[in-house]
C-alpha cells in the first residue's frame, strides 16, 4: 500500500493505493492518528484502494473515534462498490462518513 499525504488549508487528504490489510494497516495507523490531531478535516481518498480487511476497519474506526474526540472530521471519498460491501456487512457504512 502507498500512502500520500496532501496538506491543504481546509483539509488534509490522505491518498491510499493498494491494499489496506493486516500487513499494511499499521503503516496507515502511524500516519493517520498524528494527522488527525493536527487537522480539522481528514479526507481519506480510496480511489486507488482495492482491498480492505478487518485490520483496515480497525484503523478506520480508531481514526473516527480520534476525530470525534478531538471535534474534527474524518471522511472517505471514492470508495469502490467492493469495499463498500465490506463496510455494509460490518455496519461501518453507518459509522464512517462518506462524501
Amino acid at each position: 500500500m502507498n500512502i500520500n499525504v496532501i496538506h491543504n488549508e481546509e483539509k488534509t487528504t490522505i491518498v491510499l493505493s493498494g491494499r489496506l490489510d493486516t500487513t499494511t494497516s499499521p503503516k496507515l495507523q502511524e500516519i493517520l492518528l498524528p494527522e488527525i490531531s493536527n487537522a480539522e478535516h481528514i479526507e481519506l481518498d480510496f480511489a486507488k484502494l482495492i482491498f480492505v480487511s478487518s485490520a483496515g476497519l480497525r484503523i478506520l474506526l480508531m481514526g473516527e473515534k480520534a476525530a470525534k474526540t478531538k471535534g474534527s472530521r474524518q471522511t472517505l471519498v471514492n470508495v469502490s462498490p467492493d469495499i463498500m460491501e465490506v463496510f455494509e456487512i460490518t455496519g461501518f457504512s453507518s459509522v464512517l462518513n462518506f462524501e
Partner: peptide, 22 residues
C-alpha cells in the same frame, strides 16, 4: 453488534462476520 455508534464500536469479531457473510 454492528448497530452501535462509533464511540461504542469494537473491532473484535468483524473478520469472522465478513467470512460468514461472504
Amino acid at each position: 453488534d454492528i448497530t452501535l455508534d462509533a464511540e461504542k464500536r469494537e473491532v473484535g469479531g468483524l473478520g469472522i462476520l465478513l467470512v460468514k457473510s461472504i
